[in-house]
Design a protein around this nucleic acid. Structure first.
Lengths: 115, 115
DNA sequence: CCTTGCGTTTCGTTATTCGAAACACTAGCA
DNA sequence: TGCTAGTGTTTCGAATAACGAAACGCAAGG
């Protein structure tokens, strides 16, 4: 399975729509998480493994290859870091983070913790 | 594997951080895509299958169960539809769509189509 | 009845991920 | 030199997730 790229057919869509490539790429386990962990600065492979408890190194390296091929991350002297494009993506994911917080509040409302 | 919920440990994180639950939930194949297809209005199961070429019905129903349990979608008379929470999520994903478009432009720059 | 269309489940096959170990390389140090 | 410890990375069998096609149940229409 090739790394999804905008403008090309991906799993689930032959239209080449960029969002389809993005959803194929990020709908893979740990892909979003790796981005999340890199948002604050470069990290080495073993540091990434430590932060993502339960991720196996084989998957980490597969994701690193995919994200690198996509131009979202790049190797640096300190490990891997977000490219300019990756930093923009990180910004674009900020609303998702905020949404997750409101999600959590609603779940709490349905199952309040004692008081 | 239980459906990830904010405030509870999920695959890859015991912190209960909402964003971790979100990344577990959406880092599953077709999860983002199903949301995308529902953004314009309710769709039935077979219509969803038709729009997501290549998705198998068994996975569709698993995703539908997960998204329903998460309060993001709900069954309606017309099939499945986004809840208020799901509509907010759809909004939160808009920047991702815009990012994907810039992503596509950058890829074009690296490999221009003739002119 | 019979067909058609829908929602849904089942099950054997294939693809992806896990998990742990190993390999390669570098730096520090006796 | 030789050892140790710390990286980055690959390998491979086992476990899990997804595919793919078929089937079941049900309601509506002819």
């Amino acid at each position: 399975m090739p790394t999804p790229r905008p403008g090309r057919p991906v799993r689930g869509s032959t239209t080449g729509l960029p969002i389809m490539a993005a959803m194929d790429l990020f709908g893979r386990r740990w892909a979003l998480r790796v981005l999340w962990e890199l948002r604050a600065g470069p990290l080495g492979a073993r540091a990434l493994l430590a932060q993502c408890e339960g991720m196996s190194s084989s998957v980490l390296y597969q994701r690193l290859r995919e994200l690198t091929a996509s131009g979202i991350i790049a190797p640096s002297t300190d490990g891997y870091e977000l490219t300019r494009l990756g930093a923009a993506l990180s910004q674009a994911l900020q609303p998702l983070n905020e949404w997750a917080n409101t999600w959590a509040e609603e779940q709490d409302d349905q199952n309040p913790a004692k008081a």
